[in-house]
């Protein structure tokens, strides 16, 4: 009887343990499931907003990642205001929403429009500092601009193009973005041209010209580039100043069997562009450091919030990517969608 009772107790204890283990296992499954998500979100002291013209661009997403990380280090959450399938808001709408939502600061991709300047002014009157990125909104009430100096950009392109000029180079064509600020684009182009011309002495053995290409959609860009490449006055070096034009030109050179006949110079970084560099079709590409851009922009807002002032202009370094260093960039994001450009 005593033995039987002992076995009975052991059996009951075994069942009890089994039940408790099952309970905890099941609770663990519940915790891991979507039902239990968002249970412990991290709280922040401040709420910033980031607004860009094309929120799907890998460049801007990389900038956001860097800026958000920097903001988080200072106790702030950076919200990237994006359209989804239900909305089709403009940057101006997002500015208004951010101001209405009383965010603590705004990072915005600048442009020369008056509407944006007005929103920057409204934000300021609401006590919200605005930092422009990549492109400035000149004469606005933004507290700082973080981006590329057009003069430096033109100079860098000029110096890099010079390295690829040969005795057979007769014609260098720069594709300018039709939608961008012509004043700033002109400054960059002028500087680039000046460096190239001066670099080969006098008289120049080739011509440097520019052509406006619409980049509103890929279709336009591709048609323009096809026309250029198939014309009699085909360039020996083709300089593209945005990602769309670069990728379109790269594909056209392959399609029209012009590899080796035209040297392609691109802008920005994507896996397609990296492939072009590795295949020797794209000579080099120039890009800003997305990490640095995001970090500097977030720091500018934080500094303004802390100190009450910040430098008016914060420069971001340029990066030249060619066949010698493309391997170190290959892990960078993404070849999808988007249109990022310099102006």
């Amino acid at each position: 009887m005593r033995k039987t009772t002992g076995k009975l107790i052991i059996g009951l204890v075994a069942i009890l343990i089994l039940t408790i283990c099952g309970w905890f296992y099941y609770s663990g499954v519940m915790e891991r499931s979507a039902v239990s998500s968002d249970i412990n979100p991290i709280s922040y002291e401040a709420h910033y907003a980031m607004i860009t013209a094309d929120e799907n661009s890998p460049l801007w997403n990389a900038v956001y990642q860097s800026a958000a990380k920097e903001a988080k280090a200072d106790g702030a959450y950076l919200e990237y205001m994006k359209n989804d399938s239900m909305s089709d808001y403009t940057m101006i709408d997002f500015m208004k929403m951010a101001i209405n939502a009383k965010v603590a600061g705004i990072l915005v991709q600048g442009n020369g429009s008056d509407a944006l300047k007005a929103q920057i002014a409204d934000a300021k009157s609401a006590g919200i500092p605005v930092v422009t990125m990549m492109q400035d909104s000149t004469d606005s009430e933004r507290v700082s601009f973080v981006g590329v100096n057009d003069y430096e950009l033109g100079k860098t392109y000029g110096q890099e193009v010079l390295k690829h000029v040969t005795d057979n180079t007769k014609n260098i064509l720069v594709l300018l973005d039709k939608e961008k600020n012509q004043e700033e684009t002109s400054l960059m182009y002028t500087q680039m041209k000046d460096v190239i011309i001066r670099g080969v002495g006098d008289p120049p053995i080739y011509s440097v010209s520019s052509q406006l290409v619409s980049s509103e959609n890929t279709f336009d860009s591709e048609e323009s580039i096809r026309t250029i490449l198939l014309s009699d006055n085909r360039p020996d070096i083709l300089v593209c100043l945005n990602e769309t034009n670069t990728e379109s030109a790269y594909q056209a050179l392959i399609d029209y069997n012009m590899v080796g006949k035209v040297q392609l110079v691109g802008y920005y970084q994507s896996n397609i562009i990296f492939s072009g560099i590795e295949n020797g079709i794209i000579s080099f590409t120039v890009s800003v450091s997305a990490d640095e851009l995001g970090k500097q922009a977030a720091d500018a807002i934080n500094e303004y919030k802390t100190m009450g002032y910040v430098s008016n202009y914060i420069s971001v370094q340029l990066e030249v990517i060619d066949s010698g260093n493309v391997g170190t960039y290959k892990t960078e994001p993404s070849d999808s969608g988007g249109d990022s450009s310099v102006q």
Partner: peptide, 10 residues
């Protein structure tokens, strides 16, 4: 009314 990294909270 607090800022968090939760999309819902935001």
């Amino acid at each position: 009314q607090k800022t968090t990294d939760s999309e819902r909270d935001l």
